[in-house]
Simulated assay, not measured.
Amino acid sequence: METLNKANIIRHDADTRGVANFGWLFSKHTFSFGRYYNPERVHFGALRVLNDDIVQGGMGFGTHPHDNMEIVSIPLTGDLEHKDSTGNTEVIKSGDVQIMSAGYGLTHSEYNHSKSDLVNFLQIWVLPKKRDIEPRYQQITFDPADRKNKLQTVVAPDDDKALWINQDAWFTLTDLDKDATIDYKLHNAENGVYAFIIDGGVTIGTESLKKRDALGISNVESLSITANQDSQVLLIEVPMIEVGF
C-alpha cells in the first residue's frame, strides 16, 4: 500500500475546529461555516462542510432553504427528526445515514426527536456534480456488523446498496479493533480522501490521530489505517476540484 511519502496531506486536529455555541446547539466546524471563517479551511476538494452538531432535547433547526448541495447526515447518538418540502418526514437514528440532494431548491427542518436526550450528528455537505437536479431524499439503516474490521460503503454514485450521491464521491465507515489494520483503495486516483476519526485513535502513514482529528490526503492511490485502540473512522473520498467563493 502507499507510504504517503508523495502524498499531499492536510491535518485538522479536533481542537482547531471552529466553535458555535447557541445554548440549544453546540457545534464544531471543520470548515468555514456560519460565523466561523478561516480562509485556509474552506473546503477539501468537493467536501465543503463537516459539522459535528450536538442539539439539546426538543430543539433544532427550523425550516430553512438549500439548493445545489449534497447533504449527508450521520447520527452518532440520539434521534434526529427530519421534515422537508418534498413531503418526507423521517426520524434518523444511530446506524442510519441520510442524504438529501437539494438540487434546484427545497426547504427542510431538523429537530432533536427527544425532549430530554441530546442528539449528536455529523452534518456533511458535498458540492454536486450536476446543478439544478430534481431534489431527492434517501435514508438507509446500515448493519454495524458489516463494518467490523472491514469497509462499509454508505454513500456512493455506483452502489445500489448505498445511498446515491450526485457526485463522484464515496463515504465509507469502518469500526476497527485495537491493532487491526485496514487498506482503502481510492475509486479514482485523482480524488482525495478525508479521514475523520469519529472515535478512538488510529495511525495513517506517520500521522497519529485521536478522536475527532482528521487527515485530508490526495495524490495517492491507497492508504492503510491501523487502530491504536478500538476506533471508528469515516472516509470521505471526493474529487479534488477547485472552488471559488
Rank of each mutant, 00 (worst) to 15 (best):
F196Q: 04
D159G: 04
Q167V: 04
V154Y: 00
I182L: 11
T181S: 09
W170C: 11
L163W: 00
K178G: 05
Y194A: 06
Q167N: 14
N191A: 12
I197K: 09
D158F: 11
I165E: 02
I182Q: 15
D159N: 15
K178E: 13
D175E: 10
D177E: 14
T174M: 11
D158P: 04
K178W: 08
A180H: 14
N166R: 10
K148V: 10
V154A: 03
V154I: 15
T153V: 15
V193N: 00
D168H: 14
E190N: 15
Q167I: 01
L151M: 12
D183P: 06
D160R: 10
A162M: 02
R147G: 01
I165M: 04
K148S: 12
D175R: 06
W170F: 13
D177P: 09
P157F: 08
K185C: 10
L163H: 00
V193Q: 00
D177H: 13
Y194Q: 05
T172F: 08
Y194L: 10
Y194V: 09
K161S: 10
N188H: 10
D177N: 14
I197H: 06
V155H: 00
A189M: 14
K150F: 04
Y194D: 04
Q167T: 05
V154C: 03
N191F: 08
D183Y: 08
L163M: 02
D168G: 14
W170N: 11
P157Q: 08
L151E: 04
L173S: 02
D168A: 13
H187M: 08
D179M: 03
V154Q: 02
P157A: 07
T172D: 03
D159E: 09
N166H: 09
V154T: 06
L176P: 00
L163G: 00
N188Y: 07
D183V: 13
G192F: 06
V193S: 00
V193I: 12
Y184Q: 05
I182V: 15
G192K: 03
E190C: 12
P157V: 03
L151W: 07
D168M: 11
K148W: 12
N149M: 12
W164F: 15
P157M: 05
K161V: 04
I197A: 01
K150R: 12
D160T: 09
V193M: 03
N149F: 11
G192M: 07
K178A: 13
Y194S: 04
T181A: 05
W164R: 07
T174P: 00
G192H: 06
R147V: 01
F196T: 05
D175F: 01
A156P: 09
Q152D: 09
D183T: 15
D160K: 13
I182N: 14
N149V: 11
T172K: 06
V193G: 01
D160F: 12
G192R: 04
N188W: 05
L186A: 12
V193C: 06
D175C: 03
D183S: 15
V193A: 02
W170I: 14
I197Y: 07
T174R: 04
A156S: 15
Q152Y: 09
Q167R: 10
N191P: 10
D159F: 06
F171P: 00
A180E: 11
D159H: 08
A156D: 12
N188K: 09
V155S: 00
A156K: 02
Q152R: 14
A180V: 13
R147Y: 05
A180F: 10
D160N: 13
K150Y: 06
D158T: 14
K150G: 08
I165C: 05
